[in-house]
């Protein structure tokens, strides 16, 4: 049986390691709203925040340029930084970039996300969605994002931090599809539902 569990609820006796859970007295409890699949003993958080990890691909906006680094807004409590010493791109305040997390560390009395290999993205639109919904937006083996790209002719880059960049094509339809996925990530048969939506509303 699959059911929605709320923070503080015991998911199961015994220990399951998953984001959005904690262990107390040899039992696993939820710390965020999520779905527990009892058969597979699998917990999927429905709410939650992004914890930066090495190798994460993210999308952000340049906030300021300091002497030794660019500061990047990642829709997260932590700022991203790009050390100008290592990176040769010329960036300006307001530029949208895609980059990879190199490390998450303390720097200048604050925790920062050190980014590498920034690539500037020109124009377009940014959506901030819940980071827990990112895997659903991408879909197994990119199925979900591929079908949106094909139907809308939009270029789409999904950052693991929950920021999505869209450009060209039918941006309104792509936005609507992503919004629907965000709201219904816990519903089964979502890929077909989105497929129908794209067919019905596509130009």
């Amino acid at each position: 049986m699959v059911e929605i569990v709320l923070p503080g609820s015991k998911i199961t006796s015994g220990i399951i390691k998953a984001d959005g859970t904690y262990i107390e007295n040899d039992s696993t409890y939820a710390s965020v709203v999520g779905i527990f699949d009892e058969e597979k003993r699998h917990f999927i958080p429905l709410e939650g925040l992004w914890y930066p990890k090495e190798g994460d691909r993210v999308v952000g906006t340049i906030v300021t340029r300091r002497i030794s680094a660019y500061v990047v807004d990642l829709n997260s409590p932590y700022k991203g930084i790009i050390m100008t010493k290592f990176e040769h791109s010329r960036l300006e305040e307001g530029d949208i970039i895609e980059a990879t997390v190199r490390e998450f560390k303390e720097f200048d009395d604050a925790m920062v996300v050190v980014l590498t290999r920034p690539k500037r993205l020109f124009g377009g639109v940014l959506l901030n969605i819940k980071p827990t919904k990112v895997p659903r937006v991408i879909g197994k083996g990119n199925t979900m994002i591929d079908q949106i790209t094909q139907a809308t002719k939009c270029s789409i880059i999904v950052g693991l931090n929950g920021t999505v960049w869209l450009k060209g094509g039918d941006i309104n339809l792509a936005t609507e599809a992503i919004k629907t996925i965000e709201l219904q990530a816990h519903v089964s048969g979502l890929t077909d539902k989105i497929k129908n939506m794209l067919e019905k509303k596509g130009k």
Partner: peptide, 10 residues
């Protein structure tokens, strides 16, 4: 969901 747009797009 929040939406932000680039100046160019707007």
């Amino acid at each position: 969901m929040q939406i932000k747009v680039s100046k160019e797009y707007l």
